[in-house]
Amino acid sequence: MKSDRILGTLVLIGGIALYIATMDFPGAASNRPGPAFLPRILAVLFMVSGILLILHPKPTGNEKEESQPGNRVKVAAMIAGLVLYSMIADITGFLIAGGCLTFGFCLLLGNSWRVSLLVTVVLVPSVYTIFSTVLGVVLPVGWLGW
């Protein structure tokens, strides 16, 4: 029940923000609505459904999934790793950035460092090679030059 109320509030706020964001869009032409038309319909949809959700929250059917606080930290670490990857990949290249990401994530999942290293060394260069040779997708080239 509580989580539905939070969701409803977020949706309501989102709808209002969306409506405000469309305020400075150019107006309608003579024979048709302007670019704000669809976004405003959606804003109203969000507002109405947000309010409905706040007023009539449904009790969630199944139990909330068990999650240990330790695992939340792991999720945060993974997201941080992804963000870091997207920032450094263009500079260091895929091999280093992707290698760090994979190695770190392996360790995070409780693999021994040897297994992690093995997975990284096998996975990352082979992904790079397959993508750049067979699939014509050149992943960021960086310091290592391939």
Partner: peptide, 27 residues
Amino acid sequence: RRILLPGILLFCVVGSFAINHSPFDIG
């Protein structure tokens, strides 16, 4: 799973990059 998940993660990253070659897409 502890071997599979890193692989999936890497493919998520590479797969989103591949279509436009844009780091923004990873975001």
